[in-house]
């Protein structure tokens, strides 16, 4: 039953928890309730790490992961963040949102963004 409670919380959000519109690059304007919020788009920059079978990760390596995991900027203003179109095409998006006004200035597909980064 403990597990059942965890799932309840995902459903309650459906109708009116979020009053926003996200302009999906492929699907056009969609109600924000179709999306799930993850957090700061910095999460894309997961540190590279190769484990060593004989010894622990170094302090510096752990520190780098620690920062990736726990340290976030909390800007009052423009913020790039990750959203997931769970009740849609299942794409992950980078959304540029002003945390003061909720205005969304840019919506990008993560995959397109990463492709451009490589080329």
């Amino acid at each position: 039953m403990k597990k059942a409670k965890a799932l309840n919380q995902t459903y309650i959000r459906q109708w009116n928890k979020k009053f926003m519109i996200i302009n999906h690059p492929i699907l056009g304007p969609r109600d924000a309730n179709e999306f799930v919020y993850k957090g700061d788009a910095e999460l894309l920059n997961r540190p590279h790490w190769t484990p060593n079978a004989t010894k622990r990760a170094t302090y510096a390596e752990q520190e780098e992961f620690h920062d990736y995991l726990y340290l976030r900027n909390n800007p009052a203003g423009e913020h790039k963040e990750l959203w997931y179109h769970e009740q849609g095409d299942r794409s992950w998006l980078i959304i540029t949102r002003d945390t003061l006004t909720h205005q969304i200035s840019k919506v990008e597909l993560v995959r397109e963004f990463l492709k451009e980064k490589v080329t």
Binding site: K3, T10, V110
Partner: peptide, 23 residues
């Protein structure tokens, strides 16, 4: 996956597929 985490694990898998190991 477990019953309770079915949705969350799938979401997580999509995150790593699209955002971390996108190649």
């Amino acid at each position: 996956t477990t019953t309770a985490n079915a949705v969350l694990v799938f979401r997580n898998l999509e995150f790593y597929r699209q955002c971390i190991w996108s190649d």
